[in-house]
Design a protein around this nucleic acid. Structure first.
Lengths: 199, 199
DNA sequence: TGTACATCAGTGAACGCGCGTTCACTGATGTAC
DNA sequence: TGTACATCAGTGAACGCGCGTTCACTGATGTAC
């Protein structure tokens, strides 16, 4: 799957970069074989040599950016000692990632991502295990400590990431939301929704 | 746009129903002209007579179901007196809508919906004005009363609907979440995140 | 009530276009001896 | 260090398929007089 010669890696890089650029400009319908080859300057045959199909290329692109996002989130968590600072850091990390990589953000919210999550849930979890294990572990520790409410993990995930994704999608699609304000306000309110304390 | 003879309405109904059914079974790529005509039994020419294009049909389908969802949410709100019961009712209404109409839920979360929201934000707001005005009014009233935190409306919307959409998407795509548990747990936790009270 | 006529609704063959993919081939790279 | 060779990487013409759309036409409906 991965190139065994140096020039191969450069080609793969050119293709993935061009694909993301196109996705940012044109959306899903911009990701055609001819558009990607033209934008990257790489030949049609090379694309097929490295990715096998256009879906293979898109899957690889998704994986690459999912790994980067998860990597940043794990890093943010590892710097946090309490559950509260951790949750707040997650929220801020996600928002700044999307601000910095809007096209990647769009991609990760797209139906391609859903399709990948559906078709290859197991494979995805294997591939991203290095990222997901620390996340799950951190969560479990703070649930055990009684700081985070003992809900099913998907519910906790939705409570934390749901509003962040909502704001991100809106910022990307409509633009009528202030990311700075969101980064100021959301972390504490989201923390409230998953903490054990309170009302 | 809308049919001027009775039999026209029936045809439109057949087409929209078939399209939703296909979308539920096959996803976006199932929504082709030939698939819709075959599944509906309606001729190709009739489809173009009523909708002008396949995108026109999909847009109409989206509008129809968006209106139904918003309608149910407005109804739920009108039955609620306090901000807390209102927010909780919104959450539960959304979840039961998705449970009852999974294909429509998928459609409303799709990139088609984003595209519509982006391209026609203004037109959408005009078309759905009858639904959106009561929602915005309800929100403003309870912000004024000091029950709901005075945040920008898109942020409030994300805090309330974000987790619900997150859970719905996950239920639709992966299925590893219990909607009953979500309906039990989420309303109160979401309420916490938007209420003025507390920590 | 009857008739003429404009409009609406429905039909399906035909078209062209752009898509993803294949394939036979050339050239570059790295390795074994 | 030199050479032979297997493998990897890159190339682009060609293909076929399914897509959305057009269009000339027939039939049904409703309305005016």
């Amino acid at each position: 799957m991965s190139p065994k010669q140096q020039r191969g890696e450069a080609t793969v890089e050119l293709l993935l970069d061009a694909a993301l650029r196109l996705y940012g400009q044109e959306g899903e319908q911009g990701l055609t074989v001819s558009a990607v080859t033209k934008a990257s300057g790489v030949s049609l045959g090379s694309l097929y040599h490295h990715f096998g199909s256009i879906d293979g290329l898109v899957d690889a692109l998704l994986m690459r950016w999912l790994e980067r996002l998860l990597g940043e989130m794990v890093t943010a968590l590892e710097r946090s000692r309490t559950a509260r600072t951790g949750v707040r850091a997650l929220v801020r990390t996600y928002l700044s990632f999307v601000r910095e990589h809007p096209a990647a953000g769009r991609l990760l919210h797209s139906s391609h991502a859903d399709r990948l999550g559906m078709a290859q849930a197991k494979q995805l979890r294997d591939t991203q295990e290095a990222r997901l294990t620390p996340l799950a572990g951190w969560l479990q520790r703070h649930v055990d400590k009684g700081e985070i409410a003992p809900l099913a993990p998907p519910l906790l995930e939705s409570l934390v990431l749901g509003p962040v994704i909502g704001v991100s999608r809106r910022w990307l699609a409509v633009g009528d939301v202030d990311l700075d304000e969101a980064a100021r306000v959301l972390p504490e309110r989201i923390w409230r929704s998953v903490s054990t304390d309170g009302a």
